[in-house]
Design a protein around this nucleic acid. Structure first.
Lengths: 200, 200
DNA sequence: TTAAAGAACGAACGATCGTGCTATATTCCA
DNA sequence: TGGAATATAGCACGATCGTTCGTTCTTTAA
């Protein structure tokens, strides 16, 4: 029977599988993910891998969640060490642009958004929920910068978060298709300009 | 032999195939495109469809080009009827945001960019070339608005085009995953703010 | 140490994939 | 209208896909 990870060894290999699948997704996208592919990547049989998830979709969902966790670990966790307000907001944006221009493959959340935005189902729902949550974190960070008096009182946090997110997507795009350094430079300049016009 | 479209009827069915494949791509992406799928969509045999292109990749390239043509037809062609300068630039942006929030599926160029940015090959090259060309059209339109004196002389056209493009991507994202009207509204506001700070 | 539980394997399934090859319709042009 | 060119169909191939099943090996807990 395919009892889903009940023993220490079970969760260990499951984590290993997800991590390898995560790398595969960053290069080939979620629909390019195949159980046979990750099986040979972890030197296991297809059925051995399959037993850990019960379906390909469940594996994809696990990889998506792993991607979100990695993003939080790379961006929000360190940014939370900065003081509330502008420093933390700037840290979030700088780290996110670094993440978006990373060279080990594309951002899995961006891939997932494009691949599933027109395909109803569990994955699309998960993607929408994650995106909503991360956006609200951005809104919250902006709100704190308003509270500290570093951004103007009449700042529209939703609008500003939208524009920040836009920059993130464009850096992701340009750094992968054109020149990485130029893309990040454009992104940072855009962030500066945006903050300058919202600063008190 | 698979001679590629030499007779009137040949090009007609080829066009039909590409058009149907285009619809399929907008929903399932380029890697989700299958020859068998479009074959049944046009009521032909797999080999009949295949003969028109010689390979799946060639079909994908044809669909990509069709997507670019549709975009030009929907955005640049009508915008060129506007006077050079701010009116034309505004027309381009408004029409592009409409295109990005369209409801028949995602923008094929955005899909192609995400799917192939980390996968070297002919399609990636074509995507990069198209994106570069469209970006340069945006830069050109901005340059004209500088020449007419409607935008400031020290406007950085590349930077501004980058930020416009960022807005386009974000509208594409949000209108599909969240609320369409809110996404377009955010996009238009962002365009306004951008132009306001660059206006003379 | 032993019995139960879980992890992994191997083989097979039906389906679909892209791609050849060959033959038959169909269209085109002189 | 006849003959050449072309468009389409049919069939089969090897490969890969996700999934199921029964078995075997390994880990776990009493």
């Amino acid at each position: 029977m395919a009892t889903l990870a009940a023993t220490p060894k079970g969760v260990a290999t499951r984590d290993l599988i997800v991590e390898r699948a995560y790398q595969q997704v960053r290069l080939g996208g979620f629909e390019g993910l195949s159980i046979g592919g990750v099986a040979s990547a972890v030197s296991m049989s297809k059925s051995g891998v399959f037993a850990h998830f019960g379906s390909r979709e469940e594996l994809q969902r696990a990889v998506l969640e792993a991607g979100v966790q990695h993003f939080i670990e790379a961006v929000f966790r360190p940014a939370l060490r900065e003081r509330r307000g502008l420093p933390r907001l700037l840290s979030i944006m700088r780290r996110t642009l670094e993440w978006m221009s990373g060279s080990l493959g594309g951002c899995p959340m961006v891939s997932a958004a494009i691949e599933y935005d027109d395909r109803p189902g569990a994955i699309r729902d998960a993607v929408a929920a994650y995106q909503k949550r991360l956006r609200s974190e951005l809104v919250k960070a902006i709100g704190m910068a308003v509270e500290t008096g570093e951004l103007r009182d009449d700042t529209d946090a939703d609008q500003l978060a939208f524009e920040f997110f836009a920059i993130e997507l464009a850096v992701h795009h340009d750094s992968r298709l054109f020149d990485k350094d130029a893309a990040v430079a454009h992104g940072l300049r855009a962030v500066d300009r945006l903050l300058a016009s919202a600063r008190t």
